[in-house]
Structure formats: structure tokens, C-alpha cells
Design a protein around this nucleic acid. Structure first.
Lengths: 256, 256
DNA sequence: CGGGCTATTGACGCTTGTCAAGAGCGGTGG
DNA sequence: CCACCGCTCTTGACAAGCGTCAATAGCCCG
């Protein structure tokens, strides 16, 4: 049972056994948070960096009129704030979407780990870059994709992110999607009703099936095309060039 | 004439003269990019971190069907990528919205600067946090704000960001807004036509005036209320608590 | 058996997009 | 000097996407 944090960071740098020991020690102190509870409330000054060990969480912002927007989705292995610093004031909140196990990391410790090894440093910066890229694609979805495109794009992204941490059943790819349609609405900037209708459209067209919080992708290529999904932003094979980690052969990618 | 990069970072940490010298040396190598040209193209592996010295730039992503979304807006003093690393593959592009002067920074140099002084380190991480927060609010706009709210929020944000670098005329606050309505559409996830109509609505209601690429804010409080603008996310008085930079008295803020 | 949460469906209306045309303006070349 | 071009802004008419309101059904759990 490899820790999801390690599973993910392995995609960002070639970690040695030693590196993984150091990283593993960072995530030992954990606590449980119930579904729909805040992991870190709005406005506070957190004392630890939260990292999701198990379950799904999110970052959200609530407007004064009650409208809520989920800004980021956190899966197992995801660090909820940039490593290395603690915000002095939370301009957003972190909440559990399902019951979650949260590891609490001290920023001094994670910085020390980065300083201890260039590969850890590389992995952590890679993670920061990928996290930013995910948020950017999310923003593009809200700005320029239709409802079904947003859903399709999300499902493709989750397929990749969950694959990275070994949570996808690969023949007829399927994975658990333990969130309500209301949550999906808040995530994708749509109403719950419209999410429901768009999901049905995706089902009718044979792209997906979704029952009992389990998503099966029936036509991955179709879904990718429909939603303009290009996996380049997830940098599946490393993204940094500060270090010369040589062995990065070229990866076939859309070039425009 | 203080460099806008310094003007901005002063809001993030108490920089000494020495600190500022170090930072000033980072931004000495510059080049010019014409309006509408790419500063860094999609797909490339940049060799420098771009920083805007003068003019306005943006980060954008184009979908395969031609729709464009501007993801971030860069003003003078803005670093266009997280400090400390170079992406090995650009999943987006950086473009000039007006003619811009770009400083080219080597990531090793900026990391060395961060290591040379805790205050520089603090300022750079503060900048990273503020930049992320701006992107998050942008995402909230696209997801949960109407057209006029998005415009109002943008104008409030620009008012603050431009104030930080001394580009706002403060009696009847006004500033230059050198972008086309089409650009605003791509930034706010709307059509150019709808931007035009929404701008007129803001004019008619006496919130703003906008002529010859100059924006005047007639009713700042009204604009803030209308667009659910809360300046907390810009962390105007420092945002980190890694270092004990003591003298941060409490700042009055909306508490939820 | 009843309450609460989630998913579903229908009817209706508003926000926003699309298409198209025209006006204003600065630059350029004959 | 004027005609022409290209860019931006503006306006109108219409259509489409999505939100809101409301009602119902299914399910789990007490």
C-alpha cells in the first residue's frame, strides 16, 4: 500500500527509496474530517498544510448572496496549498466532500525535505505546476466550454488523475465518483438541474454510464474529442527543466 | 522611478535596500514584444521566466474549435510563471495585449535571491499566493457571477492592483485600460457583444465611465457591492506566516 | 412509518450568444 | 487631399443555453 502522495510524486521526479522515506515522514500526522465539514475554514490562519490521504475534498469560495463555487477538487495525494508557506489569511475554505483523512504538514518540514534532495524539490515544484495547470483548465471550462463539454472534460481529467494514484479499474475504465450532482454544479458553474440533464445527454450518447456513484467511461476517445481534452497540461511525464533529469524522451503532443 | 516589480513586492515583505538591489539585478535583461504577439508560445520549453515591466500581457489557452480563454492578466511587475522553475512544456501561451517590455529571469537566479534573504523569499511566496488568489477569484467570476458582476469585479481588482504599483490617479479613481472589448470577452468568458452591452449598463447606472481606453470609477462602493468584491484575496498587507514578520497588525476584514 | 437527502422531470423565462449591419476613426497610398 | 482599408465599437433581431421554480420518486436511516 503505497501512500497516494508518493504515488503521485513519482510521476514528477525519479524518487529514490531515501526520498520516499523523507516524504513519507511528512504525512504521518493525520486526522479525520467528516463529509461536508470544513478542513480549513474561510478567514483563518492555518497552522498546517492539509494534504488529502483518503477521500475527496475541495477548495471553495462563497459569495455574499450564497452562491458557491468549488475552485479546486482534491483527490488522495493532493496537497491543498502550495508547499513551503502557510497563508496568513484564508481567502477561501477547504472542505471535505466525502469523509476524508487529512495529513497535516508543517511548511518548515516540507521545505526542509525539498532542500534535502533535488529530486524532492523537483517533485514538489512539478506538483505545484500541475496543480496550477488543472486550475487553469478548470477556468477554461467555465469560460469557454458548454455544460456537456465541462462534464466530459472533468471525467477525462479524473480518469487521468485517478489513474496516477491507482484508483481506476482499467478494463472499461471506471472509477468511483463520490460527489452529488449539486457538488458537480458548484464545481462546473452550473445549476444542479442542468448537470442532471447534461449527464443524461452523455449517457444517451453512449459516452458514459453513471450509477451508484460509479462512473464508467464507455467511449474515452469520444469524450476527449467532445470536450477538447488534451492531457498535456497534466504533464504526465515530468514538467520541469530546472534540473537535467535527462531521461525525458519527447512525448507526443498536440502542437498548437 | 522604482521598478514595478519592486513596488509590488514591497507589499509582500519589508525589503531592505540590499534586498531591492538583489531583486533589481534580476530584471535587468529585457526585450520588447509587440501587441498581440506571443511572449512565450504554446508548447515550447521556455528558457527564461517572463516578467512584465511595462504594458499589459496575458496567459491564454485556445481550444481546438478556436474559442480562446484568457486565464490570467499580467500588469507591470507581474511574474508570468511561478518563480523557481521553468515549465518543460507550455500548456498555455503568454501574449502581449499591448506593446510590452519583458524582463527575462533565469530561475536559478531568482532561487538564489530567495535563498539569499528570508525577506526576498517571503516576498516571492507572497507573490505566488496572491497570483493564485487572483486566478481563483477569476474562476469564481466565470462560474458564479453575471456579466456586469464580472466586469465590476475586474474593475475593482484592477483598481487595487494598479494602485499597488502607482498607476491609479486617485481623485475620482481612474486608470488606463488598454484592452479591446474583444479581449475583455475572452478574459471574462463572454462574447464581445455582451461585453459591450454590459459596459453600457454600468455606465448608465453611473458606476463607471470609460472613454478612450481610460476607465474612471464613479462609484467604487457601489461597484464593490454589485460585484461581491472583497479585497481580502489580494492580501494587501502581507499573507504569509512562515516567518515571524511581527509587525503585522490585524487588518479589518469581512469574516465570512 | 416518516423525514431528509438525492436524483429526476416539466414548464417557463432570462441571460447570453450569434449573425449581421453600420458608424467612427486612424493610417496609408494614389 | 481624398479614397480606401482595417480595426473597434455599437446596435438590432433572433435563437439557444442555462437557471429557476416546483413537484415527484427513490433511497437510507432512525
Amino acid at each position: 500500500m503505497v501512500h497516494p502522495f508518493l504515488r503521485k510524486l513519482r510521476h514528477g521526479a525519479r524518487l529514490t527509496k531515501d526520498n520516499e522515506d523523507i516524504l513519507g515522514r511528512l504525512v504521518q500526522s493525520t486526522r479525520l474530517v467528516g463529509a461536508r465539514e470544513d478542513v480549513v475554514p474561510f478567514g483563518g490562519a492555518p497552522r498546517y498544510l492539509p494534504l488529502v490521504v483518503d477521500g475527496w475534498a475541495c477548495r471553495y469560495i462563497t459569495l455574499e448572496n450564497g452562491r458557491r463555487q468549488i475552485v479546486s477538487l482534491f483527490l488522495p495525494g493532493d496537497l491543498c496549498e502550495p508547499f513551503g508557506v502557510l497563508p496568513r489569511f484564508m481567502d477561501h475554505a477547504i472542505a471535505a466532500l466525502t469523509p476524508v483523512v487529512i495529513a497535516q504538514i508543517r511548511p518548515e518540514a516540507i521545505r526542509a525535505a525539498a532542500n534535502a534532495s533535488p529530486r524532492i524539490d523537483e517533485a514538489l515544484w512539478w506538483d505545484l505546476l500541475v496543480t496550477s495547470a488543472i486550475d487553469r483548465e478548470h477556468l477554461v471550462s467555465l469560460g469557454r466550454r458548454t455544460a456537456t463539454e465541462r462534464l466530459g472534460h472533468l471525467f477525462c481529467e479524473l480518469h487521468l488523475r485517478l489513474t496516477m494514484i491507482g484508483l481506476v479499474d482499467e478494463d472499461e475504465p471506471s472509477y468511483d465518483m463520490p460527489v452529488t450532482q449539486a457538488d458537480l454544479g458548484d464545481l462546473l458553474g452550473l445549476s444542479m438541474v442542468h448537470i442532471n440533464r447534461s449527464l443524461q445527454e452523455l449517457r444517451r450518447s453512449g459516452m458514459i454510464s453513471l450509477r451508484d456513484r460509479r462512473l464508467s467511461i464507455r467511449d474515452l476517445d469520444g469524450l476527449r474529442e467532445l470536450s477538447f481534452f488534451d492531457d498535456g497540461y497534466l504533464h504526465p511525464f515530468g514538467a520541469l527543466s530546472l534540473l537535467n533529469s535527462s531521461d525525458v524522451s519527447d512525448v507526443g503532443r498536440t502542437s498548437r
